[in-house]
Design a protein around this nucleic acid. Sequence first.
DNA 1: ATGGTTGCCAAGCAA
Length: 286
Amino acid sequence: MRLAGSGRIPLSFRFPPPMPFSVATWNINSVRLRMPLVEHFLTAHQPDVLCLQETKCPDDMFPLKPLRKLGYEHIEISGQKGYHGVATISKRPLEIVEKRDFCTKGDCRHLAVNVSAGGKRILVHNFYVPAGGDEPDPEINPKFRHKLDFVAEMHHVPATSGDDHASILVGDLNIAPLETDVWSHRQLLKVVSHTPIETESFEAMRKAGNWVDLMRQAIPPTEKLFTWWSYRSKDWAASNRGRRLDHVWSSQNLSPHLTAMDVLTDARGWERPSDHVPVIARFDLD
DNA sequence: ATGGTTGCCAAGCAA
C-alpha cells in the first residue's frame, strides 16, 4: 500500500530530489528450483536489494550468472547443502560485514552487509530464524529450544544509527507477533510461530534493539496481514489461513523515509510457488 | 482430532 502525506516537504519542492531506495525479503524455498520466479520478480519490481532465505544451495552452486545479467552484480551468499541458507543480492555495491553463526550450530541463517544510498551507509541484516518444529515445549522439543535461544541471541542485534548511517533487518523470522498476524489468534495460541513465549520474546527483542516494525507502520495493526500460506491446503486463497512470518524492520532514523510497503500476495499463486511471498519496503532518502 | 504438501535427495527429515 502507498502511504499518504508523511508530513514532510512535498516532493516537487525538494532539492536535491529524494533518492529512491528499496529492500525486499523473500523466503524462496530453494533458489535453484525457483530461479524463473526470482528473475520475474526482479524484472517486474526492481528492488535495489533482495534478501533471500532458505536458498538450500551450497555457495559453489549458487546461480550468480542470471542475477548478474539482470543488473544485480553484487551478491553475498551464506549457503549450505540441503537446508537453510541466505543470500543478499544488490544493484549497488555491497560490503560484507558478518556471517554470524547464531547458537553455534554451523547453520547458515544470517548475513549482514553494508550498502550506500542517499548519503547513508545502511547495514542490512538478512535473517532466517529456525521454524522450531511442531511441539511448543522447549523441554521436550530441541528444535523449539533452538528457536527460543536464537531469538534470545537476537536481542543483542541493535538498530545502529547516526547522521550518516542506519540499519535494516529483514527476513523469515518464523514468528507472527500480533493477533492480526495470523488467520485465527485463538486457534494458533498453541501452534509454534504464535505461542505467547515466542511472541513476547519477539517483541522484547525488537524493542531491545530499538527496531521499528515497518510493515505495521505502513499497514495498521487492526488489519490482517500475512506473508505465508501453508502448502498443505487445497486452496490457499479461499481458506486464507495465513501468517505474517516475514518481517521488515529499520532503525528509527529510517522509518520516516518509508514511502511504500508492498506485500506481493499474488506471488503465492505463481507457478510452483514458494510458500512465502516477497515483501518490498520502499524509501525516499535525502 | 488428524492429516494435509513441498523440497532436499533418493530415506526420512525439515518446514
